[in-house]
């Protein structure tokens, strides 16, 4: 065997590192998303609980730190997975052609993952912008947003993000894990359904807040 069958440049491990960066950043973002879901859902217990939570996070600088780290990890994620996004006409054409011919669920799931990733990029930036522009966080302000223009925006962002996160960890377990796909899909599907419920509960509570007033 030749010592180095292929010249990979100065660091032959760079492909592994990129893969690990995608993995770790993806998992951290999922953690962020799911913690975010539960923090958000404190509004189900009432506006004062939500406001107390917001003040608590503020007092220990957890909000700026959390958002800052989230943005940093998000940046790393986009940079490390961007190499996989099929750009260019020829790549797009061969990808869609294989998927259509095979009629293969996991291949389509991956295509959808790329599309939802790009949608998140736009919607999540908008979301963060809107919330930061009206800082500090308060239940009344969020309720106002949910009841005026933003309900459908949030529902779309929620569904897109949960799909992307769910499909992402599913694929990571398939790629690295010890379990067959069926069990992975079942476990991830259950987790996503749970988090989705928590999120929708939060949105519903924000929607009700104004009605009660």
């Amino acid at each position: 065997m030749p010592d180095k069958p292929e010249a990979l440049g100065p660091n032959p491990r760079v492909d592994l590192y990129l893969e690990l960066a995608g993995l770790v950043s993806g998992l951290l973002l999922v953690t962020f998303l799911w913690v975010h879901a539960f923090l958000n859902a404190t509004v189900i217990l009432g506006a004062p609980v939500f406001d107390g939570m917001a003040r608590f996070l503020e007092r220990y600088y957890l909000s700026p730190v959390g958002i800052g780290l989230g943005l940093l990890v998000g940046l790393i994620h986009v940079l490390s997975v961007a190499r996989r996004i099929p750009t260019g006409y020829r790549e797009q054409r061969s990808l869609w052609r294989v998927a259509r011919k095979l009629r293969h669920a996991d291949t389509y799931a991956w295509i959808l993952q790329v599309i939802t990733g790009l949608i998140i990029l736009v919607l999540a930036s908008t979301h963060i912008w809107v919330v930061l522009a009206d800082w500090p966080l308060q239940a009344a302000k969020s309720a106002f947003r949910v009841q005026t223009n933003y309900l459908s925006f949030y529902i779309i962002l929620l569904l897109v993000a949960e799909y992307h996160a769910g499909a992402g960890i599913y694929r990571q377990f398939v790629k690295w894990g010890w379990f067959r796909r069926r069990s992975v899909a079942l476990a991830v599907g259950t987790a996503v359904a749970l988090i989705l419920t928590v999120n929708l509960g939060g949105l519903w509570a924000f929607h009700q807040l104004g009605v009660a007033r």
């Binding site: 492909d15 293969h104 996991d106 790629k175």
Partner: peptide
Amino acid sequence: IYGCMGLMG
């Protein structure tokens, strides 16, 4: 192996 995207085709 690190080119594999886990598509399972």
